[in-house]
Amino acid sequence: SFCRNFENIGGIGIIEMLFRSNILAFVGHGDHPQYPRNKVMIWDDQQSRCIHELCFRSEVRRIRLRKDCLVVVLEHKIFVYNFSNLELLFQIETTTNPKGLCEVSQTADQLVLVCPGLQKGQVWVKHNASKSTKSIVAHDSVLACFALTREGNLLATASTKGTLIRIFNTLEGTLLQEVRRGLDRAEIYSLSFSPTAQWLAVSSDKGTVHVFSLKVNLGNRSTDKSNCSSNFRVPVAASSSFSFIRGALPKYFSSEWSVAQFRLPGVSQYIVTFGNENNTLIILGWDGSFFRCKFDPASGKEMTQLEYHNFLEPEEPCN
């Protein structure tokens, strides 16, 4: 592994890397920030220096990078810049967004950007190629987390209730699938699609990572223009034994549940992503912990831990 110590030790709260390149974006954090919390510093690690900076009137909540654009998220506004010359392309007003929720497509030639709308539980999907914005009423409660596939064609959302995860078609705004994390309220920390959009991973403050099977057909988009309607018939999980009386029982009896789980130690917050090998999951904790796990969707059992490290444990000095 590689790490870098700066001369003036200060807090850094946000780090975003442009793919696997030498270009990073920093925002300071803490009582003694390395950089002001209202500034975005563009760092070239090959030159070991900041090459650009952007200053704002309020604290920066999040950054998103693509090869063609830089996205800066404030609590009530999002700015999108051309990355080559830092010219402002457009800006978006949002509802209060203290978490800095925002996602952008990574592999598509044209930008797909997802952010909160102006209403509670509302998501806006901006397709830059068509200059269109799709509004999706995803939840009745405040948005807590969402994730976008790399191509930008699927969106997964969770609210502050943390019980249901919904998957939408971003082009048409239609609800494709709904899965259940659990019955109790939970704070969702992370959502992640597998590269093929066959699986969705979820982490929460309950200390369990779940993997769900997705039944969306990317080659056959629904033509239903309705958003998250109460009349939408959620597919019944194959393992459900209550499907024959689903109309007579509460909705959770016919819910789709996870096909694999992994129970985490401690109380750290964890984010999840999928590994390069089939059916593998990478779990990273704020306490420096790293887990690599393998799941068997056919068995529905606990995941198998393949690897564990803690990157904050004392090692050799940084360069």
Rank of each mutant, 00 (worst) to 15 (best):
S254Q: 08
L176T: 09
S229Y: 04
S226C: 05
Y270A: 04
L312S: 06
V72L: 01
T133W: 01
G152V: 00
S21W: 09
A248R: 15
L284T: 09
G300V: 05
G11C: 01
G207V: 10
I51S: 10
A129H: 13
H139V: 01
G11Q: 11
L148H: 03
S240C: 10
F56M: 02
P314H: 09
Y189G: 00
I63G: 01
Q261N: 15
L200Q: 04
L24R: 12
D68C: 10
Q47M: 08
T94F: 00
G30A: 01
E307K: 06
I78L: 04
D68W: 09
R49V: 06
G275Q: 05
L312Y: 14
L89T: 09
E277T: 11
H52C: 03
A248T: 13
P314Y: 10
T133M: 05
V142I: 12
K225W: 09
C3Y: 08
W286N: 07
S255C: 11
L306Y: 03
K215I: 14
G207I: 13
R246K: 15
N38F: 09
T133I: 14
H309T: 14
W124S: 07
T149P: 04
A237V: 11
E277W: 13
H309E: 14
S190G: 06
K99L: 11
G247P: 01
L155C: 08
D44Q: 08
P235S: 10
D287L: 06
A129L: 15
C55M: 10
N231I: 02
D140T: 13
K99G: 07
I271D: 05
R57N: 12
R185S: 13
N82D: 15
A158G: 01
N217Y: 13
F2L: 12
E59V: 09
V125D: 04
S132M: 10
L175M: 13
N169L: 04
Q198F: 07
A186M: 01
S141F: 11
P265H: 04
